[in-house]
């Protein structure tokens, strides 16, 4: 399974989200490749992944992609990420 974490620039929030997603996967006993991306390249990158984790504002910019798009509100909350990922992994 591949997961893409997305932010505007690909250096700040998406990296934090990637780290906390890896923690969430560990807590769920699941494994996946997690990559961080900026919104500019996310549309292309989203074609090759199963799940996209993204904020609400940027989800509107991303539009329709083949991957499952999950909106995250608190990027620091491993609990929120775990709960939203649990049905998918």
């Amino acid at each position: 399974m591949k997961i893409l974490t997305v932010c505007g620039m690909g250096i700040g929030t998406s990296i934090l989200l990637k780290m906390n997603t890896e923690k969430a996967l560990k807590a769920l006993g699941a494994s996946a490749d997690v990559e961080a991306s900026d919104i500019g390249s996310a549309r292309g990158a989203a074609r090759t992944v199963d799940i996209v984790l993204i904020s609400h504002d940027l989800a509107e910019q991303l539009g329709d992609v083949p991957a499952k798009v999950i909106e995250i509100q608190n990027f620091l909350s491993v609990d929120e990420i775990s709960q939203k990922l649990a049905p998918e992994v």
Binding site: G8, L17, D57, L58, F75
Partner: peptide, 11 residues
């Protein structure tokens, strides 16, 4: 301005 207030990553 371009991408919205997504940088507010947590409460």
């Amino acid at each position: 301005e371009q991408n919205g207030p997504y940088i507010v990553i947590a409460p």
